[in-house]
């Protein structure tokens, strides 16, 4: 999970609401959860694969979903009809698709599964405890829409691919040291990113953040 992913989804969401429905929206406080979260009534499930493997769950209340459907279709929406379901699916598809296009422009490649709509309050998406759920709430006149990104903890992220060019320039033993440094630093920086997000809720994260960065600094001196 890194800032490129987060920003791409946030910008895609803002853009969609502004350009397609002419609505301002703002992001609420980001959260990281490790537990099951109840859904609020209407949810869209989309699988994501590539550098990040996981699931996106866009979650909202029934009223918000009907307001969204009304805006997208230009006609009132009050019941669960085929059009309503297709519209909600399309919303998920467009927001996630927009994020994937942005990430593609940053040379990060992802694929999305077709969206599935889930109806029902208090149902929960259950994940193993080592999985993290990043929650990005969006607030607008429609109501609150949460973007939940579930991913398994990534040990090394896209940063590592940049070391692949090093073999052109370094002798073998230096290359191995360089690669070990790159892998360890990527893991440390990945860890730091997630901890920074948690920092608002848990100030004790500051110590491990400093330790991790100090280690990277120390290793850089080799």
């Amino acid at each position: 999970m890194n800032l490129d992913y987060i920003n791409s989804f946030i910008l895609s969401f803002y853009d969609f609401l502004k350009n397609q429905i002419d609505l301002e929206s703002r992001k609420g406080r980001l959260e990281i959860k490790n537990m099951r979260s109840p859904m609020r009534g209407v949810a869209i499930l989309i699988g994501i694969s590539g550098e990040l493997n996981g699931t996106i769950l866009i979650d909202m209340g029934v009223e918000t979903a009907h307001r969204l459907s009304s805006k997208m279709n230009g006609e009132p929406s009050a019941e669960i009809t085929d059009l309503f379901i297709a519209t909600i699916k399309e919303f998920g598809n467009l927001v996630c698709g927009g994020a994937v296009v942005r990430l593609d422009q940053l040379k990060r490649s992802f694929d999305l599964s077709p969206p599935t709509v889930i109806l029902g309050e208090q149902m929960m998406l259950a994940t193993e405890s080592k999985s993290e759920i990043l929650v990005i709430p969006f607030l607008s006149d429609l109501g609150q829409i949460d973007l939940n990104i579930f991913s398994a903890r990534q040990k090394v992220n896209g940063r590592q691919t940049r070391t692949q060019h090093a073999h052109h320039f370094l002798p073998k033993d230096e290359l191995e040291t360089y690669q070990a440094f790159a892998v360890e630093s990527c893991e440390a920086l990945n860890d730091v990113e997630v901890r920074i997000l948690r920092l608002a809720e848990d100030p004790c994260e500051i110590a491990p953040i400093f330790r991790a960065l100090h280690t990277v600094k120390g290793n850089s001196g080799l």
Binding site: N93, L94, C96, G97, G98, V100, V101, D104, Q105, S109, D111, L112
Partner: peptide, 8 residues
């Protein structure tokens, strides 16, 4: 026509 407008 697609939301997935990746270059590739």
């Amino acid at each position: 026509v697609s939301a997935l407008g990746k270059e590739e």
